[in-house]
């Protein structure tokens, strides 16, 4: 779809914004807008908004806490409420939880250490607009690189997430102590996904694998067929 229009938000301290923009441009095509955190408005007609990884505002206060209150996030929250597809990866996931767009919180890894390696995931929900080109239960390999990826929510919230199929990805190995091995969660409407692993770092064979590619293709296909 040549008219596919996306935006990658850059916060001070984002460091995966260019990788994200390149991945979206390569896989989805169309126009990838680069948007600064201080912008109060987003380009018109966006199909897809991505919040990249990094260490926005130096992780001051809590990871993602400052970025979640930046001017552009008011526009992202408004776009999400209209049903625009929003992906947050790593720090982007932390920003989405801090902004209240996704339930739960991301705490310091249970093992204290920063974890930076390829990890095995299973696709827990293959019906979402982010995962429709994966198979349910499919095992994929995607890298993680984070210090605060330990997903926490209270038991009632976790039960609801599981009951409503809002867990998108689970770790297939011990990574960071996340509740119920949750690596990625959807909002109730299904248009917002947050995940700690970096699909944008696995979109072509030169990356060492391309298991992340289907996520972007799923987003694109969902918009074409919508």
């Amino acid at each position: 779809m040549s008219s596919f229009s996306s935006a990658v938000i850059t916060f001070p301290g984002s460091n995966c914004d260019r990788d994200m923009a390149v991945a979206i441009g390569d896989v989805c095509g169309g126009t990838v807008h680069r948007v600064w955190h201080g912008d109060a408005t987003l380009p018109d007609g966006l199909d897809f908004i991505a919040l990249p990884g990094g260490f926005s505002y130096g992780d001051y206060l809590r990871s993602g806490a400052m970025a979640a209150r930046s001017p552009v996030m008011r526009a992202v929250i408004e776009a999400a409420s209209r049903g625009v597809t929003v992906l947050g990866v790593c720090n982007g996931f932390q920003v989405l939880t801090e902004a209240g767009l996704l339930p739960g919180a991301l705490m310091r890894n249970a093992g204290i250490r920063f974890v930076c390696r390829d990890v095995a995931l299973t696709v827990a929900n293959a019906h979402s607009r982010f995962t429709s080109l994966y198979a349910e239960g499919q095992r994929i390999t995607i890298p993680v690189a984070h210090h605060d990826g330990n997903y926490f929510a209270d038991d009632a919230t976790l039960d609801r997430l599981e009951g409503e199929g809002l867990v998108a990805f689970r770790y297939a190995e011990d990574v960071n102590g996340s509740s119920r091995a949750i690596a990625g969660v959807l909002n109730a409407a299904g248009n917002v996904l947050g995940m700690m692993p970096h699909p944008e770092r696995m979109v072509e064979p030169a990356h060492g694998g391309s298991d992340g590619r289907a996520l972007f293709t799923s987003v694109l296909r969902g918009l074409v067929s919508a």
Partner: peptide
């Protein structure tokens, strides 16, 4: 709204 994250 900011200083504490009341989820945790």
């Amino acid at each position: 709204r900011l200083l504490a994250n009341q989820v945790i």
